Simulated scan of single mutants.
Amino acid sequence: MKFTAEELARHPDFLLSIRHLAGTLRGMFQAGPRLARLLTSHQRWLLTQTAYALAMHYDPGDPSSGFSAVSLTTLITKHKVASRNTVLNIIEELLTYRFITHAPGEERRRPRHFEPAEVSNQAMYGWLLANLVALDMLDDGDRAACLQAHPQLLRIAQPLVARACLEDAAWREPPEPIALFLWTEAGGLVVDHLMARIDLDGADTERFDVGRVETRNLAGDFMMSRTHLQRLFAKAVQQGCLGWYDEPRKTRLWVSRNFVWQYCGWQAIKFAYVEHAFHIARAKLEGVPVKVLAQA
């Protein structure tokens, strides 16, 4: 089955898939926190996904292809995701922590081209696999098994997802309550934590119970300041996204159902692009003309 964004958002089990993915991403953060932090704000997500996609299309005979500071800056600034200086800072950070390396023979050339280190390849593979598992939960599909059997599908699918997400303003610019978290440092980790812990069996029609939340411990886990986290929660409370059952102690948290449904609708956009990209990649693997796939 091939889902559209609208079908995903309406699917009765989509929230269960979202919660499962959030828990998986939380586990990936714990396994490699420094690398995972590159995906914990929406800006960084767009930057790193776009950089990886560019690297997948590198032709040594074409200086304009591949991942360079010039090519990444051109795409990112075109869509007003970040400034040139921010792009250059991210590249420097990726190099410093050896998440990317210079392409062979490119150390002294201009523009210098970069390629993902093996740890980055593994992380991107894990991200795509986790998304496919979440989709499989909706129709008992075999997407994840197909990727595991043919990991080369990553090189086809990921650039399609990254480019589509970058070019779609509905994904690039999340709804205001979601943006409140995702445009802040480590805000993506906070949302994943909340989504992974919501109680789907609660009877309250306005909110989901998250349970006990210790801001000091949570801030420490996510390598962010407690003050920053508390300010983020305070803003979300003002907007009605979150609330505390036990004011003023602030230990047991709830998240509004409206916030969750907005988040699901936004996530459905990305999932639909993952779905479409996977089917194109599988079709190429099986030798099925893509135009035939588009007509199906």
Rank of each mutant, 00 (worst) to 15 (best):
T48W: 13
T48Y: 12
Q49E: 12
A53L: 11
A53P: 03
L54A: 02
A55C: 01
A55V: 01
A55R: 00
A55D: 00
M56Y: 07
M56H: 02
D59Q: 05
P60Q: 06
P60V: 10
P60C: 11
G61F: 14
G61R: 14
P63Q: 10
P63H: 05
F67R: 00
F67Q: 00
S68D: 03
A69P: 06
S71D: 02
S71Q: 03
S71I: 08
L72S: 04
L72H: 01
T73I: 12
T74L: 06
T74Q: 03
T74A: 07
L75R: 05
T77K: 12
T77A: 12
K78E: 10
H79T: 11
K80V: 10
A82F: 02
S83A: 13
R84H: 15
N85R: 15
N85Q: 15
N85E: 15
T86Y: 08
L88R: 08
L88S: 06
N89E: 09
I90S: 08
I90M: 09
I91M: 03
I91A: 01
E92F: 09
E92V: 06
E92S: 08
E92R: 12
E93C: 04
E93W: 12
L94K: 01
L95V: 03
L95H: 02
F99I: 05
I100F: 14
H102P: 05
A103Q: 05
P104A: 14
P104L: 14
E106P: 08
E106Q: 13
E106M: 12
E106W: 09
E107N: 06
R108E: 13
R108L: 09
R108Y: 13
R109H: 11
R110K: 04
R110F: 02
P111H: 04
P111D: 12
R112E: 13
R112P: 02
R112K: 11
H113V: 06
F114E: 07
A117W: 15
A117S: 15
E118N: 01
V119G: 06
S120N: 08
N121H: 13
N121S: 07
N121K: 15
A123R: 00
M124A: 09
